[in-house]
Nucleic acid binder design. Structure first.
Lengths: 205, 205, 205, 205
DNA sequence: TATGAATGAGTCTTCATTCAT
DNA sequence: CATGAATGAAGACTCATTCAT
């Protein structure tokens, strides 16, 4: 019985997680199109091809669905970003790693980024402050790398933290622009431009 | 009598405009805190210290209040930005003019900028696309100036339009950061940093 | 002073009554177009070319305006109808008097009749029951005349009261039809038809 | 399983239709008492013993509820009237058919008739003109029958169409009177009276 | 007396959440 | 577990009535 009980429980969990991910996927799409407030649980349920009541079996509220959508991608993005930065060697490579990680994930998860940029920061669900939290760590890694590079005279003496945030801003701005318009440049070109731009500034004597 | 008749009529208009501006001011604050959807006309009325019905005497709908709030500041910002850029001489000065105009107005109209950055682009009222419209003209002016400077070899050969948009991104990003957090740098410092950063990149050989 | 006081007071009354009749005239037009509920006091004031507050100086509520409008015409119509019937000699003439009085007044006071026929009888202001009250007296006069004519064998033996009400129905129906459509017959023709129709029935052996 | 699947779907439809008819029944009563404008959706919901939201599950707006109420009975009445007239042989029988059809349905559907007679013709939902539309066809049938009878000298030479409308007026008037007062005559007596009255007029030499 | 700006109660409609089946 | 019908709280907007000028 114990041999069966465990798997049974696991199976149940697996099913539950599968349902949750179905809902998250559906919700991501809906939220990306309309934003949090304008999206209805009905639409999410329809998109997930299940009944509204079923959605509430797996999430206690619309807000928690939203949080789950964000947490899901935000954590992945966060982890990827950190890994790429950590793996990079020089400060320039680390900066490139940051920019590329964001661009790559944006390509892959267009809907998620749309939500990130759509959502008001007065929203009940995603305070811009909280979103900024998630940037703090990669930015700190860049800051450290920049500080390091400055102290070894590899790059010009800039205020490291502000510079790191600025790199984040540049990246965010470029991605937003890509999402909001029909861009006539490729993501690669945009990313390359950003890197060249930053490099140029850093090396400037 | 004719001396009195005219002012009487004017007085009415003045009062009406004053009421409208009271409402706009109140609405700006409320919208800045909660965004368009989460704000209620009741709250706006309360903030303006008048009854809901009174608000509807001066604006036909919540959406029109919102439009008025934005139009009011957006046009001023737009005009100021264009004027400053036009008045500036060199490309570097024009870039500085753009950045400074935004920073100055942001200091002055913190609530307005909050709305600008809060509002979802799926919002019924302010599509991000439309907001971007307002940037198009100043960006074009910068683009022209940059192109010009490139062709006379004053600055390094960058893709002018992308560069101009990037400058806008940088500015927007820095302002957003200031609004979202309790900044420990002054606006002046932030603006100066941005300009130095851009200058450095432009001059880079 | 007493010589002046009286006329002064009278003058005031005259002005007041004039104002009231201005409002009644305006209200009659508005009510005729939209019915009681859909008409606003604003519209009535505008039609009367005075401020809304002024209207409330002379009437305490919208409902009282409505009552005044009806009372005004209803009493006139009532009086006219009774007079005409009383003045007529034979039963046939009395019936003709009833029909003609209604047709004539409808021509003259189209708006009033519109209101009479527009207004729902669940309306807070004019219960159909009350409107029917006003018919009771002329109908009774017809009933008496009919009874009389029957007892002297001038006309066929009909149930007098029902017949009288039926004559009223016929008249009302014809007038409603005239008001609701663009009639291609004259009022005279319609009235004559009704009279012939009734006469035919009465004389039928 | 297929035996069960079908009925399951049908059951849902049946329930839905039952709900709709519950709402229509409740709404008919409320509208009959107060007219369209003065009736609130809250009252309809209360009368139907359900929550307001439930009403909106089955009808998209108050106006559509009203339309459903009318369509429901108006079409039935119309169909019944036409059938009865068509089934009748002589012109007198056709006229009797018209009058009887109306009287019968009025007995059966008192509330519906109340609405028909209540509603202002300035109402957004039932213009008197539209209500008159529904009379056009039965009246035309009577007109044809009358014309026919005249050309074969069965009845006196009356203007056929006006006569037909007059018969409709008589009927409507009598029904209104019955609804507005506590009649001390039976419907049968009233209907018989009308028919005798019309017959008398028609046969008059 | 005349004005019309101000008020706020009342109505339709939407939608997150619950719960009986 | 799954369903989706039912609920009712909340919000935009209207308009009869009041009142300061």
């Amino acid at each position: 019985m114990s041999e069966l009980a465990q798997p049974a429980k696991l199976k149940k969990q697996v099913v539950s997680e599968f349902r949750q991910s179905e809902i998250i996927t559906a919700a991501r799409k809906v939220f990306a199109e309309k934003g949090y407030v304008a999206s209805t649980v009905d639409e999410i349920a329809a998109q997930a091809a299940m009944a509204k009541g079923t959605v509430y079996l797996y999430f206690d509220s619309k807000e928690l669905i939203y949080n789950a959508v964000l947490a899901n991608d935000l954590e992945t993005l966060h982890r990827l970003t950190l890994e790429e930065i950590a793996a990079a060697g020089t400060v320039l490579e680390k900066i490139a790693a940051y920019i590329n990680a964001r661009f790559d994930y944006c390509e892959e998860r267009r809907d998620f980024f749309r939500i990130m940029f759509i959502e008001p920061f007065g929203s009940p669900v995603l305070s811009k402050a909280k979103a900024r939290e998630w940037l703090r760590e990669p930015v700190r890694m860049l800051t450290v790398a920049i500080d390091d590079a400055i102290s070894t005279n590899q790059i010009r003496r800039w205020p490291a933290e502000v510079l790191a945030w600025t790199i984040a801003d540049l990246t965010t701005g470029a991605l937003q622009r890509r999402l909001a318009t029909m861009p006539n440049t490729t993501a690669r070109e945009d990313a390359d431009f950003l890197m060249n731009f930053v490099y140029a500034a850093l090396r400037a004597s």
